[in-house]
């Protein structure tokens, strides 16, 4: 084996070793790397009760309810299988829309609702002009802002 070949094999082995270590580490921390849980995850018990976690899903059309005379809002979040109600008092981000993806940070209440103290909007990777979006809607293919964002 020439010295050059030796160095080539050595470099290859180092890279393979690091890649393997990374795969193992990422697998071990898989749970912690998840930024949010879906309602199905929560119902399945992935998120421990009483602790803080993030809940992600699509805001159901027409589910946004405002308490009269207060900042508090309630809305239902779904992953298309299961649904949870989020209670929140505060400023909603610009992209918060019904039918769009959101991620709420908070904890479960005794009545099964989710008390959020932070709501982030999750948008998808589709960009188009309002005209194109309107055209798609007219043709009967409404653009579903958040579905792709959640079902990735």
């Amino acid at each position: 084996m020439t010295p050059r070949r030796q160095r080539m094999v050595g470099t290859g082995l180092v890279m393979a070793g690091v890649a393997l270590a990374a795969v193992l580490a990422l697998r071990a921390f898989q749970e912690n790397l998840m930024f949010f849980y879906s309602p199905t995850d929560v119902i399945a018990g992935s998120a421990a009760e009483g602790t803080r976690f993030r809940l992600g899903g699509l805001v159901i059309d027409g589910s946004l309810r405002r308490e009269i005379g207060s900042l508090e809002v309630q809305f239902d979040v779904t992953d298309t299988e299961n649904t949870m109600t989020v209670v929140y008092a505060g400023v909603l981000p610009d992209l918060f829309r019904e039918g769009q993806g959101v991620i709420a940070n908070g904890y479960l209440l005794a009545d099964g609702k989710f008390q959020a103290d932070e709501v982030l909007a999750k948008h998808d990777e589709e960009y188009m002009s309002p005209e194109v979006a309107q055209m798609l809607e007219d043709r009967g293919h409404p653009v579903d802002g958040g579905t792709a964002a959640i079902e990735q």
């Binding site: 998840m34 949010f36 999750k122 990777e125 188009m128």
Partner: peptide, 18 residues
């Protein structure tokens, strides 16, 4: 993983979402 950041727009060269 579940992330706040959305998926890639341009690198799906066959069908960019833009």
């Amino acid at each position: 993983w579940n992330t706040l950041h959305q998926a890639s727009t341009v690198t799906k060269l066959d069908n960019p979402s833009i």
